[in-house]
Write a protein that binds this DNA or RNA. Structure first.
Ligand code: FES
Ligand code: FES
Lengths: 145, 145
DNA sequence: GAGATAAAAGATAAAAATATCGTTTATTAA
DNA sequence: TTAATAAACGATATTTTTATCTTTTATCTC
């Protein structure tokens, strides 16, 4: 088990890659993205379609088209991507799977989980999509293995 | 997506329930456990079989039999249960799904994820299975909704 | 406008996780 | 030692997640 679904992992890696290329002034085709983040191409295509429908990423069809982020989108928090793909379970769900997590009906791990969740939530809310562009360009981070 | 798989959620809830009853001096049948933690009975049976094979929980067949924890097992950390069911991805895996998480080949979220993972790891390592027995007996915690 | 390019859409397929069922084996109590 | 009880085991079923393929639509270049 991981924090995010495979779908969400691909989404985030793709987002980081497209953000970097957008920062450099390019649009990117799905094929290039899939290669660079080491994901199955048609599956990733579906994921990006979804993000596009939600207005989280931009794209244009046709020659010299591809995916990109406009300036506003580059400043959105990662939390928006995660929510679009995995929903809000990671932000509000009970760690033991109870139907609703609350102070009045807590599971044994509620207090501990709340801290973990808050840390994840805070990190995802305060990290803009474009935050790692410079680091990625400098080759400081990996997205594919 | 959640921190743990459904399987692991059931496992932990069952463990807490059996621990409480063990503390009170009883063994518990699979039917009662499944009812009390609101899980599918045959599925839960499989999970507990697995835990038993690993020596994490005890059981006896036959009349007045059932599942229970011996004193030593009550002191084991929750981490042992989680590892048995979900493996160690939650403790060591990359948040973005890279094949191995390391300082030398970090993903963009590596530093942030490390903190989250460490917090989860620490909590699961330092929480013994029997920690919540008194609270559960007093009705302070919920395991079923 | 014609041809080429690339994403969108829709229908399937494969794999993994979750869930169920029927039978067997061990244990107990009488 | 027999009948009842409860877990173990093995096979199967369902659902969800992950992945693929084909056709359509939009856009660019010429
Ligand atoms: S009730 Fe389980 S985390 Fe809040
Ligand atoms: S490389 Fe991604 S969390 Fe360490």
């Amino acid at each position: 088990m991981a924090i995010f679904s495979k779908t969400c992992e691909y989404a985030l890696r793709a987002v980081f890659y497209v953000a970097q290329r957008s920062h450099e002034g390019y649009k990117v085709g799905i094929k290039e993205i899939a290669e660079q983040i080491n994901s199955p191409e048609p599956f990733l295509a579906k994921i990006l379609q979804r993000l596009r429908k939600e207005g989280l990423i931009q794209s244009v069809k046709g020659p010299s088209g591809g995916f990109y982020f406009d300036a506003a989108s580059l400043n959105r928090p990662l939390a928006d991507i995660v929510t679009a793909v995995d929903g809000d379970a990671i932000f509000t769900g009970c760690g033991l799977g109870l139907t609703d997590c609350s102070e009045s009906n807590p599971c044994p791990l509620h207090e501990d989980f709340k801290k973990v969740r808050n840390q994840i939530t805070s990190m995802l809310n305060h990290t803009p999509i474009g935050k790692f562009n410079l680091g990625l360009i400098k080759g400081k981070f990996s997205l594919n293995k």
